[in-house]
């Protein structure tokens, strides 16, 4: 079992955890993820490793509270133990000096982008990060991203903070301004789809990190499968990063929606239980 060493709130529902996991810390590269399970009835959920420290023997996870499992995880405190933690999983991000790289992220994609921005910058890239959300209140990790990027552009749908517009508007703004050698995008599937369509227009090689449904995370079940370039791939072992221009995002969104109804009713149950507990 792995102990929670520290807990810090980035915002009301975004929590940064430092977790004791010396072996995973040692093997970790940017782009890797772990599978976490909370409680004996918990499900196995993938979370990207945001940072690791070999000296401290810890890994850092940034968790955004969205469903049953992330809510349970966010309820843990310093000194608590994570029931199950396994990793590092997936293929590491391919990092080299590409030149200028645009990192476009939003929503749940912000936390997993952090280590990639860091690694790209460390290998000499000029990193321009576009951080998007529906409204200003939902922008997370702004400070961390600003520190790590050469430039940070914030986009909100309603213009309540940063620039008004979608993530794609921010990316296009950069593309029109200067030469972009590569783009990395992480976020909701629909967002990645449109970023990908945009960069395809400009022939900019683009990597998307896919957040499909997973069960085991070790290639054993195929729940995470996607079609890339006409071939079925398993995100947990072949990915999570793929050439965005080859990913069938429509199919991915359809598959993600498959469990949404059940998940929502589960969340409902969980909330009811929690409420019952506090009453």
């Amino acid at each position: 079992m792995n102990k929670v060493i520290s807990k810090e709130y980035f915002s009301a529902n975004v929590v940064k955890f430092e977790i004791e996991a010396p072996l995973i810390a040692k093997a970790h590269r940017a782009g890797h993820f772990v599978i976490v399970r909370i409680g004996t009835k918990g499900e196995r959920v993938p979370l990207t490793i945001a940072e690791s420290s070999v000296e401290k023997g810890t890994i850092t996870l940034v968790v955004q509270q969205v469903g049953v499992s992330s809510t349970k995880l966010c309820a843990l405190n310093e000194g608590d133990y994570i029931t199950d933690l396994v990793g590092p999983l997936g293929q590491a991000t391919h990092i080299e000096n590409f030149g200028t790289v645009v990192c476009a992220c939003g929503g749940v994609g912000t936390a997993p982008m952090l280590p990639i921005v860091k690694a790209l910058r460390e290998s000499g890239n000029r990193v321009l990060t576009v951080l998007a959300a529906r409204t200003g209140d939902l922008i997370i990790m702004e400070e961390q991203m600003r520190k790590l990027s050469d430039e940070l552009i914030i986009m909100t749908d309603d213009g309540s903070y940063g620039n008004r517009g979608l993530v794609t508007n921010g990316v296009e703004m950069i593309i029109q301004r200067e030469k972009v050698d590569r783009c990395v995008t992480i976020g909701p599937a629909v967002m990645m789809k449109f970023v990908s369509l945009l960069t395809k227009k400009y022939s900019i090689p683009t990597i998307a990190s896919l957040n499909t449904i997973m069960v085991d995370g070790t290639g054993m079940c195929g729940a995470c499968r996607v079609t890339v370039g006409g071939k079925t791939k398993f995100v947990c072992v072949d990915g999570p990063e793929f050439d965005a221009h080859l990913v069938d995002f429509d199919e991915m969104m359809m598959r993600l929606a498959g469990y949404r109804d059940i998940e929502q009713s589960d969340m409902h149950k969980h909330e009811n239980k929690c409420n019952a507990g506090t009453r």
Partner: peptide, 28 residues
């Protein structure tokens, strides 16, 4: 890759390892 098509490994893992048919379980 349609929704509702899955490997037996996924199906059995959800039900056996993750106890998905138990309402107490978080795995659907």
């Amino acid at each position: 890759n349609l929704v509702g098509v899955m490997s037996s490994n996924e199906y059995l893992t959800r039900v056996n390892l993750m106890d998905a048919s138990n309402p107490e379980s978080d795995t659907p």
